[in-house]
Design a protein around this nucleic acid. Structure first.
Length: 820
RNA sequence: GCCCUGGUAACCCAAUGGUAGAGGUAGAGGACUUAAAAUCCUUUCAGUGUCGGUUCGAGUCCGACCCGGGGCACCA
């Protein structure tokens, strides 16, 4: 056997990186490139420090797909950028007394270097940073388009407020009722803020998910459906004693209208405040409202909190039977869902029943469900049943009754079918410095005036001299020179809106910008976007399952409606990689189980780390790094690399003259690897590559020998397959095999179908589904012939002695099952 | 509570309804070596969470339950 040099993994890295920089194998979209286009996108990172193991896993997976599609002949765009606005940069700046720009761009440089070392197949000519004015000016432009369409608006609304940080928090920054930064209990505060009207798109966001079925993880689709939370029901109007106009309530159970025994309005709604006027219980009401307002989210979220409320001494009239229903105010009805008022049907709604029992209110069963009486059990009966005590609805089923009463109410103009959503409009204002300034100027005379498009970008001022510490209002308000501007309409002294946009705005359309990131004339070129987008394959963590993906889908639909896009869903296929854990839990410094990517790369090399991450299990599953063996991966890479050293035939040799047995294994492996990659079973693709390496080793040592062309064919197949996951080893092998770089552009070998055919297959002979024997048969054997062989088989014949054959199932060439 | 996921060997994981075991890790033995490492070869272990159903045949499909992970949750 030939003596092998030791495989120098770090030497190989240093050798090939500069060569790839010259070749630029991943440059996409050259004008003369006729290959069909594909778009692979990794979720871009936030530049907080260096890349971690999670990034490494995600980028390894995006790379598998991008590199595979290049081999398959596509012109693949695989860009990267940085989601570089955000709070951590601001915090770092406060701590250091510097500008957030410094920390941000330093970290970007660090991450970029790591990505290059990691050999990501990114097109480095398409980089973008969302904190560049050249990028965020288009955030502002899109904001103005939304403003024109009435999709960006301001309103007073209770928002999440952290009393310690003195700032508004997004819903996602409230974790179990606490501020994610300082663990202070979050309260509600009424503020005037900017919103995007995502609720206008609720139905489309929900219904268009049909397009994504089977292409996005079911889990994500389900989470989005939950989040949007469409509810179908009816609105019903109730006359109110001593009030001119009626009150409309929303219900999903209009069939139970005859079972309503009281009405509840949200205690913090304007309606409640109005109804209580002149009733004599104003002071009790005010006291109750105070206690509710003081309650934190923590209290609100407590599951078995007892019901509370106050009787308003007012009455509503049930439109179907004229009954007088007492009106109560309570916090279990939400002011901002439906109409902020409900009819309470305690017999068939658990919350209403709990309230009725607490307040000693009557309960009337109107659906006979066959379950025990809710008055006795305290358990509301919500199931199917037949309507009773319900006038014209008596005898109908629940479903029939819903249809009938909705129709009846509609005819009498007492109600109508209605929908409601859990989804709320998207609050985008932030009292922060490090974000996109909102392009609005507030003029004492003209009011809200949009910044003219020609005056974009509204650039962030220097942080120098500004106090970035959270103080309840945006630090930008104190930047006098920046904030004080003449009104674009009347020229009088006016002030810029000092808030910045939620950073989720930045990431809602960045995938469009990659098609031409340096375009200074427009956000994106309609034609280029039509060529590349939508994204064929999106890869990223499930942590963004709701917000980022929902917002991007919303933006895509808005931009489509403006006429800028010819599609309505941004990401055709989505892959969520799992997390990288250590000893069963998420890595963190404080937990002491942090595994540093850079140290792993130093110890085992880039390729071994990449293979380990890919081979550890299915991409969607979490990986526990303690289950992973990077040294084992390195051993495998060594084995593969040594094969390329053993090959004795020359490059270009005619493979068809090679050993057929090995050739068959090679072609089967290539087919299996293709299939595995296309179905996201990257771990299986690696396993098949390992098998091929083992088979080739055997062929060299004790089979056809190293000079056989089949060995070269196998070695080249290994190099190409490995190029998906271990680019350095693959390139080194390719070079040792006498080829010029880069293996990334070698193309996927053509699979010869003739070599996929088996010489013989093992047929299983069963009696009653139990295996009796196996025989080798020709793969194209007929059912009849196989059955004949089975009956002639001694094991089968013995079992058949004296038995009657009930049935014989023949599945040539694999199986015969005889039922006796 | 509702919904989505998953449960296969000591461990990570494979198996278009048709031979449960592909691959790896760990362990054991052997070859080579003064020895070790590296390399090569050989090899132990389970019957698919539980119960029931469909089927000639179930890890795979259906139902219920148990356990793990995730989402939503006073949304009428």
């Amino acid at each position: 056997m030939a003596e092998h040099e030791a495989y120098d993994i770090h030497g190989v890295e240093a050798k090939w990186l500069p060569i790839w920089d010259q070749i630029q194998p991943f440059k996409s979209g050259r004008a003369d490139d006729a290959r069909p286009k594909r778009y692979v996108l990794d979720m871009f990172p936030y530049p907080s420090g260096d890349l971690h193991m999670g990034h490494a896993e995600a980028y390894a997976m995006g790379d598998v797909i991008a590199r595979y599609w290049i081999h398959k002949g596509f012109n693949v765009m695989h860009p990267i950028g940085w989601d570089s606005f955000g709070l951590p940069a601001e915090n770092a700046a406060i701590k250091r007394g510097s500008d957030p720009r410094e920390w941000t761009y330093e970290n970007i440089a660090v991450q970029k270097a790591s990505m290059r070392r990691y050999a990501c197949s990114f097109d480095w000519d398409r980089v973008l940073h969302t904190s560049d004015p050249e990028y965020y000016r288009w955030n502002q432009w899109i904001f103005l388009q939304m403003y024109k369409k009435g999709l960006a608006y301001r309103k007073d609304s209770p928002v999440n407020w952290c009393p310690h940080c003195q700032t508004v928090l997004a819903n996602e920054q409230v974790v179990a009722g606490l501020c994610e930064r300082c663990d202070t209990a979050v309260t509600k505060k009424k503020l005037n803020q900017w919103y995007f009207k995502i609720t206008d798109y609720a139905d489309r966001l929900l219904d268009d998910m049909d397009q994504l079925e089977g292409k996005w993880p079911e889990k994500v689709l389900q989470m989005q459906r939950n989040w949007i939370g469409r509810s179908i029901g009816a609105e019903v109007t109730f006359e109110i004693e001593g009030r001119e106009s009626p009150i409309t309530i929303y219900t999903t159970r209009p069939d139970t209208l005859y079972g309503a025994t009281f009405m509840v309005v949200a205690v913090d709604s304007p309606l409640a405040a109005e109804l209580v006027q002149g009733t004599g219980v104003e002071s009790e009401f005010a006291k109750y409202l105070e206690t509710i307002k003081a309650a934190s989210d923590i209290d609100r979220l407590a599951t078995d909190r007892p019901k509370s409320g106050i009787f308003l001494h007012r009455y509503a009239i049930n439109p179907v039977n004229g009954e007088k229903l007492p009106i109560w105010a309570s916090d279990y009805v939400l002011a901002d869902y439906g109409t902020g008022a409900i009819m309470a049907v305690p017999a068939h709604d658990q919350r209403d029943l709990d309230f009725a029992r607490a307040m000693k209110l009557p309960v009337r069963v109107v659906v006979a469900t066959g379950e025990e009486d809710p008055v006795e059990t305290g358990i509301a009966t919500v199931g199917e049943g037949q309507l009773i005590n319900s006038g014209s609805l008596d005898g109908l089923s629940k479903t029939e009754a819903i249809a009938a009463i909705t129709q009846e109410l509609s005819v009498k103009s007492l109600g109508r079918a209605a929908k409601n959503y859990r989804l709320r409009d998207w609050l985008i204002s932030r009292q922060r410095f490090w974000g996109t300034p909102i392009p609005i100027i507030h003029c004492p005379d003209c009011g809200e005036v949009p910044v003219p498009e020609s005056a974009l970008p509204v650039e962030l001022p220097s942080a120098q001299g500004l106090d970035l510490k959270p103080a309840g209002t945006s630090p930008l308000g104190a930047a006098d020179e920046w904030v004080n501007v003449p009104c674009p309409q009347c020229g009088k002294a006016a002030k810029r809106d000092a808030d910045t946009m939620d950073t989720f705005v930045d990431s809602s359309w960045y995938f469009l910008r990659y098609t031409n990131p340096d375009d200074t004339a427009q956000a994106f070129d309609k034609k280029l976007v039509a060529e590349w987008a939508p994204v064929d394959q999106y890869v990223g963590g499930v942590t963004h399952a709701i917000l980022h993906l929902l917002y991007s889908r919303f933006f895509t639909k808005v931009l489509h409606d403006i006429g800028l896009l010819n599609f309505t869903e941004p990401f055709t296929r989505l892959l969520n990689q799992g997390m990288v854990l250590m000893d069963g839990s998420a890595m963190s410094k404080s937990r002491g189980n942090l595994v540093r990517l850079s140290e792993q790369l130093d110890t085992h090399g880039v390729d071994a780390v990449r293979i380990s991450l890919i081979f550890a299990g299915p991409p969607e599953d979490d990986i526990d790094w303690s289950d992973v063996s990077p040294s084992g991966s390195l051993k495998f890479l060594n084995r593969a690399w040594r094969i390329s050293q053993d090959v004795e035939s020359k490059a270009g040799v005619d493979f068809t003259t090679g050993d057929v047995a090995l050739r068959k294994l090679t072609h089967k492996a290539l087919r299996d690897i293709s299939l595995a990659v296309e179905t996201y079973r990257f771990n299986v693709a690696v396993a098949r590559t390992m098998e091929l390496v083992n088979a080739t080793r055997k062929a060299i040592d004790s089979g056809c020998g190293p000079a056989d062309p089949a060995v070269r064919e196998a070695a080249e197949a290994i190099a190409i397959s490995l190029s998906l996951v271990a680019p350095f080893t693959a390139e080194e092998m390719w070079s040792l095999l006498g080829h010029a770089p880069s293996v990334a552009l070698a193309g996927w070998p053509t699979i010869d179908p003739a070599l996929l055919a088996e010489d013989s297959v093992t047929a299983i002979l069963q009696i009653n589904g139990k295996i009796k024997d196996r025989i080798e048969v020709s793969p194209d054997i007929s059912d009849a012939k196989l059955e004949q062989l089975a009956i002639a088989n001694p094991e089968i014949a013995a079992a058949l002695l004296g038995a009657t054959i009930v049935k014989t199932i023949v599945r040539a060439p694999k199986l015969v099952n005889i039922v006796i």
